[in-house]
């Protein structure tokens, strides 16, 4: 039991470093995925066929087990964070595309008709009407994608991407339970913290969209 706490006092530096690495991966993944998902999702709302096709394509990719995905990509992009980011972005993209299209669809058609008829331009409608109203759904997708990414990034440490997974694997390889416990606490803690923060943002945006 004491080993549990002494480990932390001795190695908190490294634990912090791994935590930040983990956050870095999740951050980059979400950053890239959101930048793609919002424009692509917006375009997809204009064509049911394109939407079904693209989301269908990603749903197939989403079904591929993550470890397998990492392994397959290894061949092309090597070991390390880059491969992890690419692979996890694919999973995040599926989640985000679905919530972006759902978000845009959640805006009532009467609101859109009124704004068109009033003479608002497409850009005005997008930024002043659609975004504020769709934002809660976007954020719900972002939250889910973030938590998924935290879990996937832990697995990615097997392809040398760094992050808290390192702690877990070292724990099991070296038969060092304390590391396992800290790994579980840190990775779960990160997931809970991000969920809490993003949940708050989601609630805030929901209130702004429907006061």
């Amino acid at each position: 039991m004491t080993g549990f706490f002494t480990y932390a006092t001795k190695h908190w530096g490294r634990m912090l470093e791994l935590l930040l690495q983990h956050l870095e991966i999740v951050g980059i993944v979400l950053g890239i995925s959101i930048c793609f998902a919002i424009p692509i999702g917006y375009l997809l709302t204009h064509s049911k066929i394109a939407s079904a096709f693209v989301i269908g394509l990603f749903s197939v990719l989403y079904a591929v087990p993550s470890l397998a995905m990492f392994a397959i990509l290894l061949r092309f992009t090597g070991l390390g964070m880059k491969t992890a980011v690419i692979a996890i972005s694919i999973y995040a993209q599926y989640i985000l595309l679905r919530s972006v299209t759902a978000g845009f669809s959640s805006v009532e058609s009467s609101v859109l008709e009124a704004s068109r008829g009033m003479g608002l331009g497409k850009a005005e409608i997008l930024f002043r009407i659609q975004f504020p109203l769709a934002a809660p759904v976007f954020l719900s997708g972002i939250r889910i994608a973030t938590i998924a990414s935290v879990g996937l990034a832990a697995i990615a440490s097997t392809i040398h991407s760094g992050g808290i997974g390192d702690l877990l694997f070292e724990g099991i390889n070296n038969l060092y339970p304390v590391k396992i416990v800290w790994g579980v606490i840190l990775s779960s803690g990160l997931a809970f913290a991000l969920n809490f923060g993003l949940g708050k943002a989601e609630r805030y945006l929901t209130k702004r969209a429907h006061p």
Binding site: E108, S110, V111, E113, G117, L133, R208, A209, H210, P211
Partner: peptide
């Protein structure tokens, strides 16, 4: 229009 379409936000 009939469904009014006021902006809820």
């Amino acid at each position: 229009i009939q469904q009014i379409g006021l902006f809820p936000h």
